[in-house]
């Protein structure tokens, strides 16, 4: 069973991944927004006295993990979008009639998005090092594992949403538009939530992304034993469990 699951996941992953190297430009385009933030927004932070001026870590240490989480939000959304297109087109139906494992269909697709995220993360980090980002190798590795767990959960949630949105797909576009920005802004990804009023901080406390961002910051600075790492891990696991349960259930219910 487990061996079959691994094989099915590999089948889905290699199907999804095959077109990527054929269009290397596409990889760069999807990085457009994070790169803009890195180069056009990052320097602002670095120039803000309470960030760059004071001692301690470089602002890049604080900002780069946030950018990676931002990319981790948009990748799974794309996975859901691709699934929606295949749902409407009929190719997903074709695969549903094969013995392919349902969960493997979800995991394989999310892993492809994660492989892309990984490539992008390496590029972002490579670009940030000359700006003053200090590379804690083990921490970065742990941070990427955490992102993978979170990303798989988000991807599965996005699949469930895509399945619920057929045949038109309006629900998918509506919800992703409505949810993405609040999640992003309320996570303290761009600016520390400490700067905001109490009600904003209270709202951020309900955002699972907040905990991921804080955990990533701790890990990227090599602080493995910080409390936020635990909260972030719990948050990522909760999202992954909820996502996989919901996603697999919608797959089983019939498409």
């Amino acid at each position: 069973m487990d061996l079959r699951f691994a094989r099915d996941t590999a089948t889905v992953f290699s199907r999804e991944f095959a077109p990527v190297p054929r269009e290397p430009l596409g990889l760069l385009f999807t990085m457009g927004q994070p790169l803009l933030f890195l180069f056009l927004f990052g320097p602002l932070l670095a120039g803000t006295p309470s960030f760059g001026g004071a001692g301690g870590d470089s602002p890049w240490q604080w900002f780069v993990p946030g950018i990676l989480v931002m990319m981790c939000l948009s990748g799974p959304m794309m996975a859901g979008y691709n699934l929606l297109v295949e749902l409407i087109g009929g190719s997903l139906e074709r695969m549903m009639v094969t013995p392919l494992n349902r969960t493997a269909m979800l995991v394989g697709r999310t892993l492809k998005e994660f492989a892309i995220l990984l490539a992008q993360a390496v590029l972002i980090i490579a670009l940030a090092v000359p700006l003053g980002f200090r590379l804690h190798f083990a921490g970065v590795l742990a941070g990427l594992v955490l992102l993978a767990v979170f990303g798989i959960g988000l991807g599965a949630l996005s699949f469930a949403l895509a399945i619920a949105s057929q045949p038109g797909g309006e629900l998918f576009y509506g919800v992703t538009q409505l949810v993405m920005f609040p999640l992003l802004l309320l996570s303290g990804m761009l600016l520390p939530m400490d700067f905001g009023p109490a009600w904003l901080q209270a709202a951020a406390a309900f955002n699972p992304v907040t905990y991921i961002v804080e955990a990533e910051r701790a890990l990227f600075s090599g602080r493995f034993t910080d409390a936020p790492v635990l909260y972030g891990a719990l948050s990522a696991c909760a999202v992954a469990a909820a996502g996989l349960a919901l996603g697999t259930r919608s797959m089983r219910r019939g498409v």
Binding site: D8, R15, G90, S91
Partner: peptide, 22 residues
């Protein structure tokens, strides 16, 4: 099925190979 079975982003032969792997 009634709709088209091959995915839009993929090549004809790749889809056939994937199907066999499924």
């Amino acid at each position: 099925g009634q709709k088209n079975g091959a995915g839009e982003n993929f090549r004809v032969r790749d889809e056939l190979v994937t199907q066999g792997r499924c």
